[in-house]
């Protein structure tokens, strides 16, 4: 199965005529994802790369049956675009942009949940169910289909970590970039629950960092008696306190934000914490073995 994003997803792209939008038409198609519509207010009736453009999400969904939205608009316009996609009944909406006001992230998250839809982002590369579909801009060559559900706060780390896992024969059911901001759509807590319920996911890999509380939610899950095996890698061991490391949420304020506190909490909950990036595929393979699976050739 995979989580959230399935084969046959029909994608509508907001801001489809921009640089990212046009790139994504080709990139998503190359990954086997159907881009069925674009939304650009006032430009309905035109098309780009063979994709019809609509003036509103409602029209796009009505005419094409789009069910997933990928939103490439600047932060000041993002809240309205995401609300429009949700109101048009898109069940999955990815907003990859960064620099979004946290108040707008709260509104987006609440609006999605009120309609039973899921938001992915902000500040995330999106998600991919390898071999099935992609909603975002992560580089497809890093991924291969398999039994590991991967959750990452960082885009760049998810690419390289997935690439290393793929090379080691550890494929992925879905890789979701939950994003580097404090308030977001799908959280680590929600993602682990989805992977828990997904019959095609046998083990979970979590890529975390300093700051925020997502790691503690992962530890809470791992303590469940019926939890699937969890492997984790945390970055930011060498980050000094009080300095933001790129991501809005990657900041050590108190002890609970620190690398040491999080590693301790995860390890105590039974998570297999990899000591470094090169140890991650080994640790993930161990987890799979515990779930009765061997890495693919």
């Amino acid at each position: 199965m995979s989580i959230l994003l399935r084969a046959g997803a029909r994608v509508v792209i907001f801001g489809i005529t921009g640089r990212f939008g046009t790139f994504s038409i080709r990139d998503l198609r190359a990954s086997g994802t159907e881009v069925v519509a674009g939304v650009v207010p006032g430009r309905g009736g035109t098309e780009v790369e063979g994709v019809p453009i609509f003036g509103s999400a409602e029209q796009a969904v009505c005419d094409t049956g789009a069910d997933c939205a990928l939103i490439y608009v600047p932060a000041p316009l993002a809240l309205d675009a995401v609300l429009e996609a949700i109101d048009a009944d898109c069940q999955l909406v990815a907003y990859p942009g960064d620099g979004l006001p946290v108040a707008d992230a709260m509104e987006m998250r609440a609006a999605a949940r009120a309609r039973g839809a899921w938001l992915v982002g902000p500040n995330s590369p999106g998600l991919i169910s390898p071999g099935k579909a992609k909603l975002g801009f992560m580089p497809s060559f890093c991924f291969r289909p398999g039994p590991v559900g991967l959750i990452s706060r960082s885009g760049s780390l998810s690419y390289e970590a997935s690439y290393r896992l793929s090379c080691a024969g550890v494929g992925q059911s879905t890789v979701i970039g939950i994003g580097g901001d404090p308030v977001k759509g799908v959280t680590a807590a929600e993602a682990v629950t989805m992977f828990h319920e997904d019959p095609e996911t046998a083990a979970i890999v979590y890529l975390g960092e300093i700051g925020g509380t997502d790691e503690y939610a992962v530890a809470d899950y791992a303590r469940r008696l019926d939890a699937k095996p969890v492997t984790a890698l945390l970055v930011g061991r060498t980050a000094p306190p009080g300095k933001k490391m790129g991501h809005a949420a990657a900041l050590v304020g108190g002890y609970a934000d620190s690398w040491a506190a999080k590693v301790e909490a995860l390890a105590a909950a039974g998570v297999n914490v990899a000591r470094s990036l090169d140890q991650l595929p080994i640790a993930a393979a161990e987890s799979l073995a515990r779930a009765g699976l061997a890495p693919a050739a």
């Binding site: 990452s152 960082s154 960092e209 060498t238």
Partner: peptide, 25 residues
């Protein structure tokens, strides 16, 4: 490049007995 990979590289430098001079993404 990228906040997560920059931190991962910083940590790798420390694990190899060195110390990073910067976070530069």
């Amino acid at each position: 490049g990228g906040a997560g990979m920059t931190m991962a590289a910083m940590d790798a430098i420390a694990a190899a007995g060195g110390a990073p001079a910067c976070f530069l993404d």
